[in-house]
Design a protein around this nucleic acid. Structure first.
Lengths: 362, 362
DNA sequence: CAGGCTATCTGAAGCGCTTCAGCACGCGCC
DNA sequence: GGCGCGTGCTGAAGCGCTTCAGATAGCCTG
C-alpha cells in the first residue's frame, strides 16, 4: 500500500521503510551496507527514496548514532585574510584538506579572533572529531576548550600541548642555517624581519625584552636560531635589530625592511621569516635604489613558489609544506582511529642558495 | 549520594543530573536557559560538570534535537591552494567568515576536486544548515546534491541556480568599463588575460569557440564585457586575443602576458580579469624590457591591496569584496531563519584609474 | 484563608539514525 | 532426513540532547 508522502515534513528513513514495506534497518543498510540486502530490494529502496525526495540519511543523526562527525576542525590563530596572505599556509592547508578529504572528511574552519585564536565557545560547539591547531599563541584559550572536550589534537608548529600529536619544523636549525649562510658570506651587519611575537597586534621594531616574552614559539625559535647562527661570527644579539610584522604579507615586509635599512650602520643583509616578507624586503630595497644582492642580501623562509619566481630568485630555507600538511592530516585521521599522539614529527629544513644573497660590497 | 563517575564512559547530561540529583532538563537549562533555574543550582551544576570533566552538551546531539547544525558550508570550485592564491577570494571569505561567526556559526569548507567543485557525496554528508557556493562551473554536480537535500543556498558570482539567494557582481559592466577606458585612451590593439573558461584544467590561448562554450559565467561575462567595451572603437572580437589561465596567480598572469605580448601587432594594452593576473603581466612586461604604461597599459580587476602597492599602481575595476562577503554571510544567516532567497544583490563596480594605463606610444 | 502568581523544576516525548542479536529459510552434504 | 551454514531481513535498544506541558511550592493579595 502506497503511503502518501508526509505532508510538509521531510522524509526520513521511516518514511521510506514504510513506503517500501521493509524495516528501517533495511533502508539504512541500503545506504551503508549494500552487501546486506539483495540488489533488487536495494534498487527499489533507492528509487523510492528518490521519488519521495529523500536525500539519504541525515548527517547529524548519523553522527549521533555513530559517534563520529566526520569533520576535522582547523584552528587558526588569525583571521582568514591575514592567515591566507601567506602562501605557506595555504599550501599546507590545501595538502591537509586533500588528505582529510581522501579520508572522506570535511574541514571545519575556525578562524582566530583578534589574533588570539578561535573563541573557546566556538570550539565547544564545533562538530568535529579531531582538531588541528596551527599557529596559535602559547596558552590560547581555544586549546583549553579542546582539552575539556578531550578531543584528539594535532598541533602544527606550535605551541606544545600535552597529549597532542605534533608536526614541527626545526625552526631553530632552519634559522641557524640562514644566519650562518650570511655569516659565511661575510655579512656582519644583519637585520631580522620577523613575524608577530605576541598576539597583541603590534608591529614595528622589537627590543630584546619583547623578544624574550614572545608568545609565538615559532617566532621565538627563529629569532634564537638566527642569533645562534650569527654568534660564531662575533655578532652579538644586541647588534641585530629586529622588526616585527603582525601579518606575513608583503606590505609588512616592505615596511619592516625600510625601517631595518634605516639603521646605522645599514645592514648588509636581512633575515626574513617568510618568503613573503623577503619579497617585500626586495621591493623596499629597490625603492631605495639598492640592488639585491649587491647592496643588500635577503634570505627568505619556506621556499614557496614565489621564491623561485622573484627577481632575484630568493635564497631561502626550504620546508616541505605539502608533506607537512599531509602529515598533519594523516595524524588527525590516525588519532580518529584511536591512535595515541605518538612522537612529534619534525620536518627537516634545507638551505636553498639562490641569487638574493652574495658577499657584502666593501 | 555521590555517584561514582561512569568508568570509561564520557559523562553526559544524565551523569551530571544524577550526580547533582536533578532532572536532565534542568542540567540542559543550566547551559541553555540560565534564567530557568536559580543561580545557586546552576552554579552547583556547572561546578559538578567541571569536576566530572563534562564539557557541555554534545554538539551533535544538540544539533539533532534542535534541528540545526550551526554551520555554514562553503563550496569552492577549486582546491584550496589555487583558490587562495587570489587575495580577492580570501578577503571575501574572511568577511564571510566574520559575518557567520558573529552569528555564532562555524564555516565548513568543501574545496573542489579537479576544478569541478566538491564531490556530491561530500555535500550529501556535510553537516550544515545552509550552503554558500562560490565560483563553481555551471552545472556542478555539487549543486544537485544541495538541491536534493533542499538546503538553502547562497550563490556568489555564479552560476545561476533556481531558488537560491544570489550575490553578484555586474561583471559585464565592470569589464566594459575597463575596455572603454582603454579605448578612450586610444588603444586599438588589446589582449585579454582571463580566468579559466571551463573546468578542464586547460590554460593557454583560447579561441572564440572555446569562449562561447565557457562554463564559468564570470569569465564568459567579462570577456563579453571587454568586447562590448571595445566594439565602439571599431575593435572586432576577432582582433582580440584571449589567454586563459587555469589559476589566478601571478605566474599564470606572467605566462599569459608573455604570450599575448608575442602577438603581432603587439597589443598596447592588456585587460586582466584580476589584479593578480595584472601583476603577473607587469612582471612579464618588465622582463621583456617594456615599460608600463609607456609601452603597454595594464588594467586589473578587483582592486585588491596589491593594486595600490604595485609598481606602477594598477588601474583596475574596483569591487567591494568585504561587502560582498558580508552580504553573502547575511543572506546565509537570513535564509537560516527561513527567509526566502529574495532578489539577487548586485554589487557595483567602479573604474579606478591609476598609473598602469596611459595612451599608447606611437 | 481562598485564589492567583511567579519562580523552579520535572517527565516524557521526540530528533533520525546505526547496529547487533537473532530469526526464517533454503541449500548442500553426509 | 537431520545438520550446519550462509543469505536476507527485522526488532529493539540505544546515541545525547531539547523542549514543552505540567507539577510543586512559596508568596502575595484581598
Amino acid at each position: 500500500m502506497a503511503v502518501s508522502p508526509d505532508r510538509g515534513r521531510r522524509p526520513t528513513l521511516d518514511t521510506i521503510a514504510l513506503e517500501v514495506g521493509v524495516s528501517r534497518a533495511t533502508v539504512s543498510n541500503a545506504y551503508n551496507r549494500p552487501d546486506q540486502l539483495s540488489v533488487q530490494l536495494r534498487e527499489r529502496i533507492i528509487a523510492t527514496a528518490k521519488r519521495l525526495g529523500y536525500a539519504g540519511p541525515d548527517p547529524t543523526a548519523r553522527s549521533l548514532a555513530t559517534q563520529r562527525t566526520g569533520a576535522v576542525a582547523f584552528l587558526l590563530g588569525q583571521g582568514l585574510s591575514s592567515a591566507f596572505s601567506d602562501p605557506a599556509l595555504t599550501i599546507m592547508l590545501d595538502s591537509l584538506a586533500a588528505t582529510v578529504d581522501s579520508g572522506d572528511r570535511a574541514l571545519l574552519l575556525l578562524p582566530g579572533v583578534d589574533d588570539q585564536g578561535p573563541r573557546p565557545a566556538s570550539v565547544a560547539r564545533a562538530q568535529t572529531d579531531v582538531v588541528v591547531a596551527y599557529s596559535l599563541p602559547d596558552g590560547a584559550p581555544a586549546l583549553d576548550a579542546v582539552r575539556e572536550r578531550q578531543l584528539p589534537l594535532v598541533v602544527v608548529d606550535q605551541p606544545v600541548v600535552p597529549d597532542s600529536a605534533r608536526v614541527e619544523l626545526d625552526d631553530v636549525a632552519g634559522a641557524t642555517l640562514a644566519a650562518r649562510h650570511l655569516g659565511e658570506l661575510g655579512h656582519r651587519n644583519v637585520g631580522i624581519l620577523g613575524f608577530s611575537l605576541s598576539p597583541d597586534g603590534r608591529h614595528g621594531p622589537a627590543d630584546r625584552g619583547r623578544v624574550r616574552v614572545a608568545r609565538y614559539r615559532v617566532t621565538r625559535d627563529r629569532v634564537a636560531g638566527y642569533l645562534a647562527g650569527l654568534a660564531p661570527f662575533g655578532i652579538g644579539p644586541d647588534e641585530v635589530p629586529v622588526w616585527e610584522a603582525n601579518c606575513g604579507d608583503q606590505q609588512f615586509g616592505r615596511a619592516g625592511a625600510l625601517w631595518l635599512m634605516g639603521n646605522r650602520p645599514r645592514p648588509t643583509a636581512l633575515l626574513c621569516m617568510s618568503d613573503e616578507l623577503a619579497l617585500g624586503a626586495i621591493r623596499a630595497a629597490t625603492e631605495l635604489g639598492l640592488s639585491v644582492p649587491r647592496d643588500i642580501s635577503v634570505v627568505g623562509f619556506d621556499d614557496t613558489p614565489g621564491a623561485t619566481w622573484s627577481d632575484p630568485p630568493l635564497t631561502t630555507i626550504r620546508q616541505d609544506l605539502v608533506a607537512k600538511g599531509r602529515r598533519a592530516g594523516e595524524l588527525a585521521l590516525r588519532m580518529l582511529d584511536g591512535a595515541g599522539p605518538g612522537d612529534p614529527t619534525t620536518m627537516g629544513v634545507e638551505l636553498i642558495p639562490r641569487a638574493s644573497t652574495a658577499p657584502p660590497a666593501r
